[in-house]
């Protein structure tokens, strides 16, 4: 409706009659006196604390210990079949007995039949306990980490940043992003937080230092 486009824009311009014609957007000062980072100590430690606050399961491990820890987590969970992005490193699954199904266009029913999903991430924000997925390396498309009820996410130490302002420059807005802070939750009943609604009800995180 191009008529409406012109109508709305004309109304906007008429409403802004008080704004001087030669004023540019940059002429409206934006004071950015807020902190680029809040000093809250060691980032990985803080990330663990925040994730646990959201009732996520968190482990710290080493590159050598990762495969064993993944195997133990999948066994503890009682999984038989888990999904993984096509490009997830093979050595993550070097120790597990569980069947790992590489995503090559699984349909929704196929994804719904999985006991869980194992992925990496694009970045993690310590202060807010947030993991960001950008559908890039070792993460797969969005549906992969949404439909299975259990998400095991591998976070490398160098992917952790202190706060939100450090995360944004690392992320490409052209990619679809999912920021995850703990398992799905709701506060809709008496504003009491309950973990586990439509998204994965269990989030387990392996931090590899």
């Amino acid at each position: 409706m191009s008529g409406s486009r012109e109508r709305v824009l004309a109304r906007v311009r008429a409403a802004l009659a008080d704004v001087p014609r030669d004023e540019a957007p940059q002429d409206v000062a934006v004071p950015r006196d807020y902190s680029p980072a809040h000093d809250r100590g060691e980032a990985a430690e803080l990330l663990v604390d925040r994730l646990e606050d959201y009732k996520a399961l968190v482990h710290r491990t080493s590159p050598e210990g990762l495969a064993g820890d993944i195997a133990r987590a999948l066994a503890r969970r009682g999984t038989h079949r888990v999904a993984a992005p096509a490009d997830a490193p093979a050595d993550w699954f070097g120790s597990t007995e569980v069947e790992v199904v590489r995503d090559g266009g699984l349909d929704i029913a196929g994804l719904d039949g999985m006991d869980g999903v194992v992925t990496g991430c694009a970045a993690a924000i310590a202060e807010t306990g947030t993991i960001v997925l950008d559908a890039g390396e070792a993460q797969g498309r969005r549906a992969l980490t949404l439909i299975p009820d259990y998400h095991l996410c591998v976070v490398r130490g160098d992917q952790i940043v202190a706060g939100v302002p450090q995360a944004l420059p690392r992320l490409d807005p052209r990619r679809p992003l999912t920021w995850i802070s703990g398992p799905s939750a709701t506060s809709d009943i008496e504003l009491d937080r309950v973990e586990g609604v439509h998204g994965p009800r269990t989030l387990e995180v392996m931090i590899v230092d």
Binding site: E127, T128, A143, P173, P176, W179, I180, S184, A185
Partner: peptide, 27 residues
Amino acid sequence: QLLPRSSTGERMNPYTSTWTGVTPGDG
């Protein structure tokens, strides 16, 4: 930073999605 703390009183809400137009093969 402003919105989750002001609305649900959380450091961050559980999920934030951002998307730009259409991504082939995803969504």
